[in-house]
């Protein structure tokens, strides 16, 4: 058996199941004897370490865990609320900014925009012109009839 193999067994998971070949090698090899002694020393160290007193939970530990869960839940709720409010503020600010940009960037007229007050004002004289067009009153039947009857009545009165 080589030293490398002997040492692999000495620190392996089955170190307690020493074979005859291993014992024979270790008995004849001072270097592996020292290695085996150290390995056993380390194992003893682990055993001593395992026996060490560990800290105990102080009284009320479980209650403190539950209180911590409550705190975290409350904090989570608050964070969610603030996030929601914050998100809405951001959305509102975004919409306002967009409107502002549109107002500044878009041309004063065009398919996306209605006529301005000024345009409406200047458009009015045209409308009056159209309204005063002499053709329009003649188009009402009533006006035409009265105009036609009037001379007839007048002529009858003249004869009598």
């Amino acid at each position: 058996m080589r030293c490398k193999d002997a040492r692999a067994i000495l620190i392996g998971n089955e170190a307690d199941k020493a074979s005859a070949a291993l014992l024979e090698h270790v008995a004849a090899c001072p270097s592996c004897q020292a290695y085996a002694r150290d390995a056993e020393g380390l194992r003893g160290g682990f055993r001593a370490f395992a026996r060490e007193a560990v800290p105990e939970p102080s009284w009320g530990f479980a209650a403190r865990v539950l209180r911590r869960l409550d705190e975290l839940e409350e904090r989570g709720r608050r964070a969610n609320f603030l996030e929601l409010v914050g998100r809405r503020v951001v959305y509102a600010a975004g919409v306002l900014t967009l409107l502002l940009i549109l107002a500044l960037v878009l041309p004063a007229s065009g398919p996306l925009r209605g006529p301005t007050t000024a345009q409406l004002y200047w458009a009015q004289p045209d409308a009056t012109l159209v309204a005063s067009n002499p053709i329009f009153p003649d188009e009402t039947g009533e006006a035409r009839d009265s105009n036609r009857l009037a001379p007839v009545v007048n002529s009858t009165e003249g004869k009598q």
């Binding site: 560990v54 800290p55 105990e56 939970p57 530990f61 479980a62 209650a63 865990v65 539950l66 869960l69 409550d70």
Partner: peptide, 16 residues
């Protein structure tokens, strides 16, 4: 949570 508290009591020493 109350039920979880019982589990904490049972395993706290081990976890510590």
């Amino acid at each position: 949570r109350e039920a979880f508290g019982r589990l904490v009591e049972r395993y706290q020493q081990r976890v510590f």
